[in-house]
């Protein structure tokens, strides 16, 4: 099957820090790709390169290509907002927008003009809150400020909000690391349900979570991809010593 995302010869620099070195990756469609590696190895940087968040920082430079569905997202004339609409981000800490729960989900619909007639907004808000597993808990207080939710609920709200713009790709940067175990479990279950429709890239430090979720594993170290492959190969029979060392908790 044709990979959904191709990363070719990607190099990223922050000033003088060489954060990503010669990255070549193919990310399969409609599967969960888990990126692992010790702190500072460039996982967040790699995710940021996929939704063009790197360019928000003046001092970054990059070279190489990233293709989604065969099209270079950094090509001239590509609309960056379209790229970000295609690749939604679930950050480590939930940041609800300063508006109601309802408006948080409707925000993306509105800015992209996805609901020309107001009626369908209600239906979509409900749909995506259901999909994020939050509907039952918030259906009676949709028009209350989103900041009133618990952190775990906020993270699911961020998921709903991200799904509402109908992305193809979900980028999760340690999305459960700030959550309690039950909320984390919630998010994990959601991701499992969603992988039939979305290509999911998940950064995690939690080995057990990686083993539970991964269809494809990428191991990074000091800005390089050391090894990538199916979970069976990487977890049970790593080819590289550094992967083995990481799996054994040596970093």
């Amino acid at each position: 099957m044709e990979p959904h995302i191709q990363v070719r010869d990607l190099n990223v620099y922050y000033e003088k820090i060489h954060a990503l070195k010669d990255i070549d990756l193919e990310i399969p469609r409609h599967q969960i790709t888990v990126i692992m590696g010790p702190s500072g190895c460039g996982k967040t940087t790699l995710l940021k390169s996929l939704n063009r968040f790197l360019e928000l920082n003046e001092s970054t430079r990059m070279s190489g290509n990233i293709l989604i569905d065969g099209e270079d997202i950094y090509a001239l004339g590509v609309d960056v907002t379209e790229v970000r609409k295609k690749a939604g981000l679930l950050a480590q800490h939930p940041f609800p927008l300063p508006m109601s729960i309802y408006d948080n989900v409707a925000y993306g619909l509105r800015i992209h003009g996805m609901c020309p007639n107001g009626r369908s907004v209600d239906a979509k808000v409900q749909h995506y809150l259901l999909e994020a597993g939050l509907w039952e808990e918030v259906k009676d207080r949709l028009h209350f400020p989103a900041t009133g939710l618990s952190v775990g609920q906020q993270q699911r709200l961020c998921l709903a909000r991200g799904l509402a713009i109908e992305p193809e790709i979900l980028l999760g940067d340690e999305p459960t690391s700030a959550l309690d175990p039950i909320s984390a479990q919630h998010i994990e279950n959601r991701l499992m349900d969603l992988k039939n429709e979305y290509t999911i890239i998940l950064v995690t430090h939690i080995l057990r979570q990686a083993k539970r979720l991964a269809d494809y594993v990428v191991f990074m170290y000091l800005g390089k991809v050391i090894e990538s492959g199916l979970p069976g190969e990487i977890f049970d029979n790593p080819q590289e010593e550094r992967t083995l060392a990481y799996l054994e908790g040596q970093f």
């Binding site: 968040f53 970000r84 609800p96 927008l97 300063p98 925000y107 909000r161 991200g162």
Partner: peptide, 20 residues
């Protein structure tokens, strides 16, 4: 983080300023 959340949804800078 709030600004980034809006930008990540594909909002432009101006939309982010105006609505968020």
């Amino acid at each position: 983080g709030t600004r980034l959340a809006s930008l990540a949804l594909g909002a432009t800078k101006w939309q982010t300023i105006k609505y968020v």
